[in-house]
Simulated scan of single mutants.
Amino acid sequence: MRLMDLTNGRATYEVEFRFSTLFEAALGLAAATYPDIHHTLERPPAYWAELKAKLPADVQQHVSHLQRNNTWKTLLNLLDRHSFADLEDFLSYIQNSDAQQLRYESLPFLGQAWQETREKAAAGETTAVAALQQACRDHKFFPDYIRFLCEVEIDTLKHHLVTVMAGWYQAIIAPEEERVQGILERDCEAKLAMAAKLEAEELVEWATGGIRYLPEPHIDKVRLVPQFVYRPWSIQAEMEQTKILYYPVSDESISTEPDPDRPPHMLVLQYRALGDEHRMRMTKLLYRKDHTLQELTDKLGLAKSTVHHHLSILRSVQLVGVEGQRYVLKHANVNALFPAWQSYLERGGDLPE
C-alpha cells in the first residue's frame, strides 16, 4: 500500500501552569478520605487521622459525607474550570451558582461525545443520568457519584461543599498558608524556568518526574498543577480540550530557605547514577533502541543480577522505564539533564560577564 501524507505533521499541545492553596485543600480532602493509599503517601497514616481530629465536629461529619460521595471531585472540577482569587471567592461562586450549572460543572467529563448527555443529566433527565452511569460503569466511583449529584437537593449540596471546604481550609491550610503558598510558587517558578528550554512533551515528562503524555487529537492544552499534599503521587484529570496533571513538588521547593547554590536533589541523583561506566553503556544502548533484560545482559557480558541492579538505579532517578518486558530510555528526562544543569548554574547571584 502507498500512502501520501498531506497533513502538517504531528501537532503538540500547549503547556500552562496554575497553582493555588485551594487545590491543596481539595487534594488534601481527597487524600485524607482515601485510606487505601495512606501507606503509600509521603506522610504516615497516623497523620491523616490527626488532621481530621483537628476539625470541628460538624466539619468532621461533612468530611465523612465527602468520603462516602467523593465530593472532593466536585471541588476539583470547579477549581479546574475557573480561576478564584481566594477561598471567599470560591465559596461565593458555589453559593451563587445556578443549580443546573453547578451540577453540570460537578459531573465528570467523559469525553466530547457525552457532553449533550451531561447537560441533560444536569437538567434532571433520568434517562441521561442512567446513560452517563452506563458510560463509566467500570470506574471505581463515577456511577455512584453521578447518581448522588443528580439526586441531592442543590441547597444541601451547596451547604456541604461550602462547609467542608471552608472548615478544612481554615483548620488545615490557613495555619500554614504562607509556607504552602511559597512551596507551590517556588516549584512553579522552577518549572517555568525550564519551559523555554524544552519541548512541550519533554517539559511535561520532566516536570512530573516521568509521565509521558503524547498529544491526542482532542487535547489542546496540558495544565500542570504543583501539589505538596499528595506526594509522591501524580493525579490526572481531564476537561474540555485540556488534560490536567497534579504533580508532586520537588524536594528543593519544600525548603523554607532556598539556597540558589544548592543543586536540585534529583539532578544530583541523576548525575550520580550516570557516573558509572556500566550505567553509561546501558544508557547508550537504550538510546539506540529498547532492550530486554536478557539482551542487555548478553551485550554487556555481566551477570543478570548486576544488570538488574544498575537498571534499578537508572529507573529510580527517572532516566529509564519499563514498557512490557522491555527497558526504555526516558528521552525527555535525559534531554533535560543539560538544561537543568544550566538552569542550576544560572540560578541566583551574578552571572559572569
Results as ranks from 00 to 15, higher is better:
Gly210His: 03
His139Pro: 04
Leu285Asp: 00
Leu329Asp: 02
Leu110Val: 07
Thr74Ile: 04
Tyr93Ala: 07
Phe228Leu: 06
Ile211Lys: 12
Leu107Gly: 01
Pro44Trp: 12
His291Pro: 02
Phe109Gly: 00
Asp155Pro: 01
Arg315Thr: 10
Glu88Ile: 06
Ile37Gly: 03
Val59Ile: 14
Lys52Tyr: 13
His265Asp: 13
Leu79Phe: 05
Glu125Ala: 09
Pro143Gly: 08
Leu285Ala: 10
Asn77Arg: 03
Glu323Asp: 09
Met266Gly: 00
Gly9Trp: 04
Gln67Met: 13
Leu184Gln: 15
Thr74Pro: 00
Asp155Trp: 11
Glu125Asn: 07
Leu351Val: 05
Trp341Tyr: 02
Glu353Leu: 04
Gly321Arg: 10
Tyr246Gly: 09
Ala200Pro: 06
Ala332Glu: 04
Gln181Tyr: 13
Gln325His: 03
Ala273Tyr: 00
Ser106Glu: 07
Gly348Lys: 14
Ala113His: 12
Trp341Met: 07
Glu238Pro: 04
Ala190Phe: 05
Leu55Phe: 10
Pro339Cys: 10
Asp261Ile: 01
Leu78Cys: 05
Thr40Val: 05
Met165Ile: 11
Lys140Leu: 11
Trp72Gln: 03
Leu345Ser: 04
Glu201His: 15
Asp220Asn: 11
Arg231Val: 14
Glu151Ser: 15
Leu110Trp: 02
Gln133Trp: 12
Met282Arg: 05
Ala171Asp: 02
Ala46Gln: 12
Arg288Ser: 01
Val152Gly: 01
Lys330Gly: 00
Arg43Asp: 06
His265Leu: 10
Val229Met: 11
Thr21Arg: 04
Arg223Glu: 09
Trp168Asp: 12
Leu267Ser: 01
Val204Thr: 15
Asp259Thr: 08
Pro217Phe: 06
Asp58Ile: 12
His265Tyr: 03
Gln241Trp: 03
Ser92Phe: 02
Leu285Gln: 05
Trp72Tyr: 13
Gly321Asn: 03
Leu184Pro: 11
Arg212Asn: 13
Lys284Asn: 04
Gly301Leu: 11
